[in-house]
Amino acid sequence: MVEAQVKTDQELNKDVVFHVSDVTKTYQMGEVAVQALRGVDLDLYRGEFAVFLGISGSGKSTLLNILGGLDTPTTGQVLYGKQDLTRADEHALTEYRRYHVGFVFQFYNLIPSLTARENVAVVTEISKSPMSPEEALALVGLENRMDHFPAQLSGGEQQRVAIARAIAKNPDVLLCDEPTGALDSQTGIMVLEALKRVNETLGTTTAVITHNAGIAQMANRVIHLTDGLISDIHVNDQRIAPNQLSW
């Protein structure tokens, strides 16, 4: 099925959420310096669904971590709106993550001692204007599994709880690191559908990291990373629904 409303690069340009300029990141691994990012320039736009593609070691996770306020670049600048993330201290970065960013992890990272509902509540309790945990779980189709503990849920269900947890605070950006990496294709599709629904209904800027090229077809833009540099940015004229994706 072909997407009806395709946003063009031009349209999105109006509202830049992230402005990344000349970012490098060097890790000191023992005695070897590993350059994960070698000078990345990129803008991400409000409401877009961006997929970052690249093989492992290409620097896509490093970039996502920097966008999410988990890491800081070695050189260069990252602006979130007007806020300079490269100059923020630990406290400011925590506040940034707390009020603006939603994270979805490859291995879900749910709190095993809390139920699905409580896993969402753990975030909504510290947010400014969250939706209710029930509402968030309904968005990902888990309204009937709310009182189950993680150990009682399947992998796909756990990842959907994680998405509900990420979106419940009404974040400005949703960052997903290999959200389907630990899932089979069928479950993966359910998770991607949930992400798409959130992106469309709430207009949350969504960045998904994957090495699965198939997923790229559901994005507005596909950003390719190779050896720490952006090698290509591709705008999808026609987005494909998750259930149509070739896995």
Binding site: G68, L70, H91, T94, E95, Y96, R97, R98, Y99, V101, F103, F105, N109, I111, V122, V123, I126, R165
Partner: peptide, 8 residues
């Protein structure tokens, strides 16, 4: 994970 989610 909680730190990532914005816990101090």
């Amino acid at each position: 994970s909680l730190r990532v989610l914005g816990f101090h």
